[in-house]
Computed example of a mutant assay.
Amino acid sequence: MIRSSSLLTALSVPALMLASCANAETGESSGDGSAPFTITEKASFNEPWAIEFAPGTPVLFVTEKSGTMKFLDTATGIIGTVSGLPDVAYGGQGGLGDIAFLDSEASDVLDRRTIYLSWAEAGDGDTRGAVVGKGTLVCGETESCAIEGLTVIWRQTPKVAGRGHYSHRISISPDGQYLFIASGERQKMQPAQDTTNTLGTIVRLNLDGTPAAGNPMADKGGVTAEIWSYGHRNILGLDWDASGRLWEVEHGPAGGDELNLVAAGANYGWPERSNGDHYNGDPIPDHSADDGFAKPALSWTPVIAPGDMIIYSGDMFGAWKGNALIAGLGSQALVRVAFDGESAQEAGRYDFGARLRSVEQGPDGAIWVAEDGKDGRVLKLTAE
């Protein structure tokens, strides 16, 4: 067991710069830089991308970006394999992606439950796109599970060239009725403002992948009927607060990472507005009160490069209940954000000295993080 005081570095605490409409913008700020947790290494995996506990169990499932999937029984330490996976378009930011389970199927028996997966899929003419599939997880043996009947229920439209900005994070609404899927703009920018496609959007679907009734543009049909919000860049974190509101965190360009409260039909401005600039130095107009776009609740310049996000609801870290915890890639930190209504501010940043790809809350309220890259460690954080 490694004590956090030997690994983690407290950061400075500059004041937050307040923006319009109760929004806040900050750079490398930190509220409380102390680290009130102990870190225990539990396992390592090859390019872990998503970690997710099967509800009702201590079993943590881990996708590996190259197309494999494993599980860690955190009660026994057993690591098992999962078969029945799809072929993935591995490369760049693409590969096997997110995992989602239904809380309504929570049980201490792991066997036979619905599982959702996302991945990058190859198309015609050197094109690719994100997809989401639905299957049944069957775990009849201690060290192996299989996914049966995995069927694609949603495809990012259109497939395009390139290997970046798939997003493909999955979140199920608190009432268990809807799938929300982050669909990145695939580094193509302008499609995020075009609602005849689903690039740069969050889509809201029924559990079978069909467009949900009541979506903002349901009357337009086609893929437009799937859209819940648009004008996004590269969303890598989605989660719900205790009031049932959906929040997302996304990569900006050179500066301007954003935390947004997601509203039905809202346009978040990319690439017409950003608090960052293009990588070549060309400016992008900042968000402003009168630009007609939804404003970020919080933005970061320099960026934190988010990899994932949860909104903590456990008791182990009682003072953090209701805070967002963001796994930082470029920032190599766990970033904590506190909310006040529709505004937010960074409340803590805890340096890990490694790129953090994913974050998850354990059944006992412990926090789990997965490092990015080959031999990425899965770490358990417990309160001191």
Rank of each mutant, 00 (worst) to 15 (best):
K159M: 15
A327M: 01
I326H: 02
L325S: 03
M316L: 12
R155A: 08
D315M: 12
R3G: 04
A305I: 13
T224I: 09
R273P: 01
L238V: 00
T195N: 07
A370V: 02
N323T: 12
V223G: 02
T196F: 10
I170T: 11
A182H: 01
T201N: 03
L72N: 02
T74Y: 07
A225W: 07
G129L: 14
V359I: 15
T127G: 01
D372Q: 08
I304K: 01
E28G: 09
N206I: 08
T114R: 00
T136C: 11
G231K: 07
A192T: 08
G281P: 08
E143N: 09
T114Y: 04
A354P: 06
D87E: 15
F180K: 00
N215I: 07
S313Q: 15
D219F: 15
V249A: 04
G140S: 11
V13I: 15
E141F: 14
W154S: 07
R113W: 11
P216N: 03
G97Y: 08
V378W: 04
S331F: 07
G133K: 04
V303L: 02
G200R: 02
I235F: 05
F180D: 04
V303S: 05
I99T: 07
G77P: 09
N280G: 13
A366K: 04
T196H: 08
G184Q: 04
Q345R: 14
G92W: 02
I326C: 02
D124C: 05
A130N: 12
E148W: 06
M1S: 13
L325P: 11
L137P: 10
V109F: 10
V138Y: 10
N206S: 08
E64G: 06
V131P: 01
R336A: 15
G252L: 05
L102C: 03
S183L: 00
F352T: 00
P302G: 04
A324R: 04
D108L: 13
H168P: 02
L236Q: 01
T210D: 09
S243G: 15
L236A: 01
K65H: 05
A338L: 09
E384K: 10
S173N: 05
R169Y: 07
S83T: 15
T224M: 01
K134G: 04
T26N: 01
E360T: 15
I51G: 01
R169K: 14
L205N: 00
D277C: 05
E25T: 14
I78Q: 05
D98E: 13
W247T: 10
T26F: 10
S288Q: 12
